[in-house]
């Protein structure tokens, strides 16, 4: 039973069609990624889910409720972290969390949340004095302080250094392990690959793919490449005869085999049968990056 269902969502701003036709379903307890180039309609889609915008067409259902009609109920049950949303400069960490906790019927303990997010020694620090990573963690904490069933996190790690980004990822996994369904809007492929159970790729207002990151890679960019240095001469035909192999190239003493499916197994088996050892063997598989380029024709933003 999905906790979020979006069907044929449409949203335009004047002449600009932000969301043309988006349908997706998010299952309870998963980390669901929404990927896409800038301006693809990701943020607009999640804003409609969060009840911040009124769709021009199509349906949105969250926890079986309507984000506009049942807004009051959903605000208690859905936590939202918006892109580029800041706090007043002089507001301190603990004050912010205590204030936001007071809005909810069944909030998390702010002090506990502060410790969990590694802001324990910053509780009396003004927002202005926090680093980018600390601001981001506070922002996540505010999205979680109401003990939500669903957390929508938009551009979670944009502007963070690699270490802070990794720390944030660890945190998100913890949150999911506590039973919260997470919708993650991102344009970092590495982030989606690491965190998401499933991703929807949105381009020009439409869903162009919806699968697990690995599933997406294997259907969209199935090409694999094996490089090795054979211990004895290899006849190309030995390899090209394999159904998994699409091409064989040689660069110096190195053999490069391209193909799909169980390529590694097929190649190593045939070499073993001919008692050839493959030295310096490396398997190169496509990443979500490649799949993304294949799907949208854009390079991801990083």
């Amino acid at each position: 039973m999905p906790v979020i269902e979006v069907t044929h969502l449409k949203k335009r701003y004047g002449d600009l069609v932000a969301v043309d036709d988006v349908s997706l379903a998010v299952e309870a307890g998963e980390i669901f990624g929404v990927l896409g180039p800038n301006g693809a309609g990701k943020t607009t889609t999640v804003e409609c889910v969060a009840g911040l915008r009124v769709p021009d067409g199509g349906g949105v259902s969250v926890l079986g409720l309507d984000p506009r009609r049942d807004a009051a109920q959903l605000r208690q049950r859905v936590g939202v972290q918006l892109q580029e949303s800041q706090l007043p400069d002089r507001l301190r960490v603990a004050e912010a969390l205590e204030l936001y906790a007071s809005f909810y019927r069944n909030p998390a303990d702010p002090a506990e949340l502060i410790d969990k997010l590694g802001l324990g020694d910053k509780r009396n620090t003004a927002y202005k004095k926090l680093s980018g990573g600390q601001k981001q963690r506070l922002s996540i904490a505010l999205a979680l302080v109401g003990n939500p069933e669903i957390a929508i996190l938009d551009e979670l790690t944009t502007g963070l250094d690699p270490q802070a980004r990794r720390d944030t990822w660890g945190l998100i996994e913890q949150v999911r392990d506590s039973g919260v369904t997470i919708v993650l809007v991102t344009h970092f492929m590495e982030e989606a690959e690491r965190l998401c159970d499933r991703v929807a790729v949105i381009d020009r207002g439409r869903v162009v793919a919806l699968d697990s990151p690995a599933g997406l890679v294997s259907t969209v960019a199935p090409e694999q490449r094996i490089r090795f240095r054979p211990s004895a001469p290899v006849d190309d035909r030995l390899l090209t005869d394999l159904p998994e192999v699409s091409a064989v190239q040689r660069t110096g003493s190195q053999v490069v085999v391209t193909g799909t499916g169980e390529l590694l197994h097929a190649v190593t088996s045939v070499l073993a049968r001919h008692q050839i050892v493959a030295a310096d063997l490396r398997l190169e598989q496509s990443t979500l990056d490649d799949a993304f380029v294949e799907l949208t024709g854009h390079r991801p933003a990083n």
Binding site: V80, L82, E84, S85, L87, F103, G146
Partner: peptide, 16 residues
């Protein structure tokens, strides 16, 4: 300033 920095928008996502 509150509007520009998204303070009002963030508040709109909470029960307040």
């Amino acid at each position: 300033t509150y509007r520009e920095r998204g303070v009002l928008r963030r508040l709109a996502t909470t029960p307040a």
